[in-house]
C-alpha cells in the first residue's frame, strides 16, 4: 500500500516525530474547542522544531539548527501568542462549528493520507535525505489542513488551517531537501507574519460588520 515505508528513516527518532506531526494534524481536525485548537497548533510547532532538530542531527546539516531555532521562536512562541491574544480580545470561546461532522472528516482524512503516500512514493524513491520516507507525511499534513479549511465554518478555524498548511510545507521542505535556501525561508515567514496581522485586522472588520465570526452570516450577504 505505502511503498515509501520501504524506506524507513535511518533514525527512529526522525520517524517517530514525523508520525507525531501527522497525528497532530488529525488532532486539529478533531478538536471542537477554539482554545484547544490553538494549543494543538503550538504543539505542532514544537513537534516541527524537534523534528527539524532531529533531522539536523541525523544528517549533520548545521544550517537546519537555525531553521529549528527560528521555528521555535516563530511558530511556538510568537504566532500562538498572537492568536491567544486575539481570541481573548475578541472574547471567542465558542465551539468549532463544522460543515461535515468530525468522524466523517476523520475517515476522509484517512483516504487523504493513503493518497498522499501513493503520490509521493516516486519522489521518496529519488530523495537522498535521511528523512525521505516522511515526504508523504508532509503532503498528507498539507492536504489535511486543506480539508480542515473546507469543512470548518468559523473564520478563526480557517486561519488555523492556513497556518497548518504553512507548517506542512515547511516540514516537506525539510524532509525533501533539508530546507529551502535561507532567503526564501525568511521571505515565506515574513509573508506568513504579515498574513497573520492582516487576518487580525480582518477579524475586527468582520465582527464590526457581521457581529459574528460564523461565515454563514457572510454567506447570506447578497452579492448580486
Amino acid at each position: 500500500m505505502t511503498p515509501s515505508l520501504l524506506h524507513p528513516p535511518t533514525s527512529p527518532l526522525v520517524g517517530f516525530l514525523g508520525s507525531a506531526l501527522l497525528l497532530s494534524s488529525f488532532a486539529m481536525l478533531a478538536m471542537r474547542r477554539m482554545g484547544s485548537l490553538v494549543r494543538i497548533f503550538a504543539l505542532q510547532g514544537i513537534l516541527l522544531t524537534l523534528s527539524t532538530l532531529s533531522v539536523a542531527l541525523a544528517a549533520k546539516e548545521p544550517h537546519l539548527f537555525f531553521s529549528a531555532l527560528f521555528t521555535l521562536a516563530f511558530k511556538v512562541l510568537l504566532l500562538p501568542f498572537l492568536l491567544f491574544r486575539l481570541l481573548e480580545r475578541l472574547h471567542i470561546r465558542g465551539e468549532v462549528e463544522v460543515l461535515l461532522n468530525v468522524p466523517t472528516t476523520m475517515v476522509a482524512g484517512l483516504f487523504v493520507v493513503v493518497f498522499s503516500f501513493a503520490l509521493s512514493a516516486p519522489i521518496s524513491e529519488m530523495a537522498n535525505t535521511v528523512s525521505r520516507g516522511l515526504i508523504g507525511v508532509g503532503l498528507a499534513a498539507l492536504l489535511l489542513s486543506f480539508l480542515m479549511m473546507i469543512t470548518r465554518r468559523k473564520a478563526v478555524t480557517q486561519v488555523l488551517g492556513f497556518l497548518g498548511m504553512e507548517n506542512a510545507l515547511f516540514f516537506s521542505a525539510i524532509n525533501a531537501t533539508y530546507g529551502m535556501p535561507m532567503v526564501v525561508e525568511l521571505g515565506v515567514a515574513f509573508d506568513v507574519l504579515v498574513g497573520t496581522f492582516v487576518f487580525g485586522i480582518f477579524f475586527f472588520q468582520i465582527r464590526e460588520t457581521f457581529e459574528s465570526f460564523d461565515l454563514k452570516h457572510m454567506d447570506n450577504t447578497p452579492t448580486e
Binding site: V198, F199, F202, Q205, I206, T209, F210, M218, T223
Partner: peptide
C-alpha cells in the same frame, strides 16, 4: 468596508 466588500476580500484572501 461594506458587508459585501468584506466578504469579497475574505474570499480573495
Amino acid at each position: 468596508r461594506t458587508p459585501a466588500a468584506i466578504k469579497a476580500s475574505w474570499k480573495y484572501f
